[in-house]
Amino acid sequence: MRFHTRKWVKPEDLNPNSTLFGGQLLAWIDEEVALYTVIQLENPKVVTKYMSEINFMASAKKGDIIEIGIEVIKFGKTSLTVKSEVRNKMTRETILTIDKIIMVNLGPDGKPKPHGKTEVEFVKDRLENN
């Protein structure tokens, strides 16, 4: 799994228990997976279709640095399926796992559109081939 983004847990990210609010963490994951999908599918029009069970395993507190990991599970005809893990950057303790997140590629009409991709590509490889 590749860990792409780091977030610093700030006071405004906390719940009444003084730990990271789960809704904030899910928003960060959703944004990160959307950005990853936009880059992979080379289309800014993608949406979250599905998130499987979310397993909160530990909490984060103010001042912690967390990192969001994403791994591609499969390329569908109009979708990209990934899994995600969030961990504490300093301790490597797993905070959350999501086994399946499905993102759908959309056409100009807002309906699912085939993307034609079959494997993970890196931007640097695209640039070298041009």
Rank of each mutant, 00 (worst) to 15 (best):
H4K: 06
T5S: 10
K7I: 11
K7F: 15
K7E: 12
K7T: 11
W8M: 15
V9F: 07
V9L: 00
K10I: 12
D13S: 04
L14K: 12
P16L: 04
P16G: 04
S18P: 08
T19Q: 08
G22N: 10
Q24K: 12
Q24V: 14
L25G: 00
L25R: 01
L25F: 12
I29G: 05
E32R: 08
E32Y: 13
A34S: 14
Y36H: 01
T37Y: 02
I39W: 13
L41A: 01
L41N: 01
N43D: 03
K45P: 09
K45C: 15
V47D: 08
T48C: 10
K49W: 14
K49L: 13
M51T: 11
E53Y: 13
I54E: 01
I54N: 01
F56P: 03
M57I: 08
A58S: 12
S59H: 08
K61Y: 14
K62N: 14
K62Q: 14
D64M: 00
I66Q: 03
I68K: 00
I70Y: 03
E71I: 06
E71H: 10
V72E: 11
K74I: 10
G76A: 01
S84V: 10
S84R: 01
S84T: 05
E85D: 13
M90G: 14
E93K: 13
E93Y: 03
E93V: 13
T94G: 02
I98T: 15
K100S: 05
V104A: 04
L106G: 01
G107S: 08
P108Y: 07
D109Y: 03
K111F: 15
P112E: 09
H115W: 11
K117T: 05
T118D: 03
E119H: 11
V120Q: 00
V120S: 08
K124G: 04
K124C: 05
R126W: 12
E128G: 15
